[in-house]
Design a protein around this nucleic acid. Structure first.
Length: 223
DNA sequence: GGCCAGGACACCA
DNA sequence: TGGTGTCATGGC
């Protein structure tokens, strides 16, 4: 087995034995997962939860209801998640596509092959690489590895990749080195998020981090 | 009271 | 192609 592949699986095992199953992503339905993926762009999940609760309370957690709601209502509902004007546009553009192309059905969308669906999602305004891959992996069960800020930080700290590696290169790195399994990709990303939140955010050291024992000697902790 | 969060996009050199 | 500004709320 290649060295990088072994290292990635070692990192996974350490996080998994520390936390157990994460059952990531939080969300009751594929549609809710997709909306959460858009709302969490550059935003703390605690703020996203409030907006999602607002959507449910207002019976707006379905694509047609969102398309029919007026801007003022969506602004109020999405306000807690920040960037509420731009997120109103982005949530709508996703719903517009879902309704026009798949009759509003996430299940129907998920039947499309990955190599056709990914470029299609990336073509929707407001859906970038990470958001598209969140939707593909967690809402559509496609074997895509999700890269985020925590992933880049973690791997560059461990000396596995350059800190400025691009999104697609880092995604390809994971997908090349790991077995192509949806369950593994889901859990790996969930564990990265949990580890990142617990140990990599606003903390001067990594005390208690399940990955601390394998940090390269002399590797700077904060970036 | 300041800093920052699981990004995406427009604009500019 | 790479760097920078913008979008906004809420927790720490």
């Amino acid at each position: 087995m290649a060295r990088a592949s072994k290292r990635l699986l070692d990192i996974y095992e350490r996080m998994a034995s520390h936390y157990g199953p994460t059952h990531w992503w939080p969300g009751d339905t594929p549609f809710e997962i997709a909306i959460g993926a858009i709302l969490t762009q550059n935003t703390a999940w605690t703020n996203v939860e409030k907006a999602i609760a607002n959507l449910k309370r207002g019976n707006l957690m379905n694509p047609r209801a969102i398309l029919e709601a007026d801007d003022a209502l969506l602004h109020e509902v999405l306000r807690p998640s920040g960037y509420f004007r731009i997120k109103t546009l982005r949530v709508r553009s996703f719903c517009r596509h879902l309704v026009d192309r798949y009759g509003g059905s996430m299940a129907r969308m998920a039947k499309r092959p990955l190599d056709e669906l990914r470029p299609e999602l990336l073509d929707i305004p407001g859906i970038g690489p990470e958001t598209a891959d969140d939707i593909l992996l967690y809402a559509c069960e496609k074997p895509v590895f999700v890269v985020d800020a925590y992933t880049r930080r973690m791997l560059s700290r461990h000396g596995l990749v350059e800190p400025k590696i691009g999104y697609e290169d880092l995604r390809a790195f994971f997908e090349r080195q790991l077995p192509n399994e949806v369950h593994l990709f889901k859990e790996y990303h969930g564990l990265v998020v949990w580890t990142g939140k617990d140990f990599c955010r606003r903390k001067p050291n990594c005390a208690g981090c399940p990955l601390a024992p394998i940090l390269k000697r002399g590797q700077p902790r904060p970036d």
